[in-house]
Amino acid sequence: MSIELNHTIVHATDRDATAAFLTDILGLPDAPVYGPFRVVELGNGVSLDVVEHPGHLTPQHYAFLVGEAEFDTIHARIVERGLPYWADPHHHRPGAINHNDGGRGLYWSDPDGHNLEIITVPYGG
């Protein structure tokens, strides 16, 4: 059997709001409840299991590989909602899209400051 990522846990100050934010921006189905989690299902069988976490959160980075059409749609949602976005992970190039590895990419933050990224080409081309 090959080794694949199955799920990861996303800590959030408001589980339901974070799951709704992710599914809305990414255009995914509503996240069902499974125990203490809201399960955000991605297209490749991996899930982001959002759990409420009291206290300080350490921001994490979550990158999503998307097609060209999905990139345009997600970018439009980010712009429509007035969310700031950047071409780089350190947020030095506001309102821009990068063209790394011959694709397109951008970064934005979720309500808890997790650094989210969409790319159309995996790193390294």
Rank of each mutant, 00 (worst) to 15 (best):
M1H: 07
S2K: 12
L5R: 01
V10P: 05
H11A: 14
A12D: 01
T13Y: 00
D14Q: 10
D14V: 05
R15A: 07
T18E: 12
A19I: 12
I25R: 00
G27N: 04
P29W: 05
D30Y: 03
V33Y: 02
V33S: 10
V33W: 04
Y34N: 10
Y34W: 11
Y34P: 00
P36H: 01
P36K: 12
R38I: 03
R38D: 06
V40Y: 09
V40T: 08
L42Y: 06
N44Q: 03
S47L: 09
L48R: 00
L48D: 05
D49S: 10
V50E: 02
V50F: 02
V50K: 07
Q60H: 05
Y62Q: 08
A63S: 15
F64A: 07
G67H: 10
E68L: 02
A69V: 09
A69Q: 15
F71A: 07
F71M: 04
F71Y: 11
F71L: 11
D72M: 00
T73R: 13
H75V: 00
R77G: 12
R77S: 05
I78E: 08
G82E: 08
W86K: 06
W86M: 01
A87G: 15
D88V: 06
P89V: 08
P89L: 09
P89E: 13
H91Y: 13
H92E: 14
R93N: 08
R93V: 01
G95F: 05
A96W: 05
N98C: 03
G103F: 03
G103E: 09
G105S: 10
W108D: 01
W108M: 08
S109D: 14
D110R: 10
P111I: 00
D112V: 05
D112I: 01
G113E: 12
N115Y: 12
N115D: 15
E117R: 07
E117M: 13
I118G: 04
I119N: 11
T120N: 11
T120K: 08
V121A: 15
G125R: 15
G125M: 07
